[in-house]
Design a protein around this nucleic acid. Sequence first.
DNA 1: ACGCAGGTGTGATTCAGGTCACTGCGATAC
DNA 2: GTATCGCAGTGACCTGAATCACACCTGCGT
Lengths: 247, 247
Amino acid sequence: MSFASTATHVPLRFAAPSMSVSLDRIADFLGTVPLFRELERASLRSFAEITREHKYGKGTVIVSEGDPGDALYVVRSGEVKVVLVAEDGREVILGVLGVGDHFGELSLIDGRPRSAHVIATATSSLLVLRRADFRRQVEQQPQVGWALLMELSRRLRQADGTIGSLVLLDVPGRVARVLLENATPGEPATLIKPMTHQVMAQMIGASRETVSRAMSEFQEKNWISVARRQVTIVDRVALEARARPAI
Amino acid sequence: MSFASTATHVPLRFAAPSMSVSLDRIADFLGTVPLFRELERASLRSFAEITREHKYGKGTVIVSEGDPGDALYVVRSGEVKVVLVAEDGREVILGVLGVGDHFGELSLIDGRPRSAHVIATATSSLLVLRRADFRRQVEQQPQVGWALLMELSRRLRQADGTIGSLVLLDVPGRVARVLLENATPGEPATLIKPMTHQVMAQMIGASRETVSRAMSEFQEKNWISVARRQVTIVDRVALEARARPAI
DNA sequence: ACGCAGGTGTGATTCAGGTCACTGCGATAC
DNA sequence: GTATCGCAGTGACCTGAATCACACCTGCGT
């Protein structure tokens, strides 16, 4: 780990194929991804070796629901959204993934078709790991299997929470919930990433207008304040109460 | 396997502690559970050894949301429901588990508190595996880790599908969806397990009355027929169309 | 500076579906 | 038998939120 960061300061001079320099940089990056965090330098490099880097322009569909899927993707830069798309064009956003996040594990694990679309919301660079290569590596590195279980557990808890909130909460309640979920833990808690009302609406199954009204209401009550699309949570307790089923 | 079933016909006569007979029966049972299906006889027995059997009367709360969780449960007989409960008593049913199903993996994996209540809907007998014991066994048996990944993948796909249907479908659409999801694959497809409208309603986040009306509508259109609470799917294609977003 | 696009605030209208309030019915219990 | 209990059907009413239709920002590119 410390060796790696040194390497970037003192680049190898001779006989080092540019490929392995880039492999080092990829291995460095993988070391920051929770899925691979437990791995040692050498293992990180062997994972780095099986990656291919792909770039996608904003709006590009990276994977489509129903596709046979046989690769895992790690976001190296940019941002993508995981969405279900209805025939009439309505979208549900299941997740917004940033640097260090990954998707495509499900098809990798069970071999079934992709369960959602993934679309770049900004120009993005993704590392792609093909199933066969990945499996071979994971067999060598059982810690990755564990990290995968942790990740799927996290997502399953989150998905169940979302189901609960869709059924038990009204729209303002759900808005309060996304705000809290995307807030940094500290005080004053600010939203990690500014999102448009449209995006929030698609995350919680509501219309843009209703989200707008809920946000106005929260500002009036002084639970949040908004400056240049940056939301700051002023009264966390009040929001938490609003995001709890049954007022 | 064949030995075990023989054993039940020709019980061992001497020196066989009754415990090991019951262990054999438990191992037999575990062999039918997908999570353990890949294991050999000996491994099944070592899993059987770390189980404790518990009985729960109808209505008993087996685990509560928020509890620290450190056990995996396998349903050996009876039926349980996984539910989120709001303070005002409203319930969302995340799943109904029958013989061979299991729950509690999440807390086992990530050590976080239980994410939902599990309540016996009939007198049930559950095999309980404590975390430490289970982990030790899994380290010996990596196939189980894989089976767990498969199971979590399945559930995550299902959860995402549920989120999609909650947002994109109207109530009749969601009713059509549960009907299809619980139908036997063959023709004529019947519902695996008769459920009350109340239960369906809590599974899809709707009121009992609205489910009732949807079911009446489907019967009138001759898409399903109901005899003594047993639902038969008459027109699968029509139901599938109704369960698709955007008419 | 200008126009333009993408995002936001807000009213008016409509409607799916929740809630309430019954009735009917088939089981199991007494 | 009849009482009782849980479940199912159906009407009447009410309301949260979608939809439609604007006007208004604010940052951007030329």
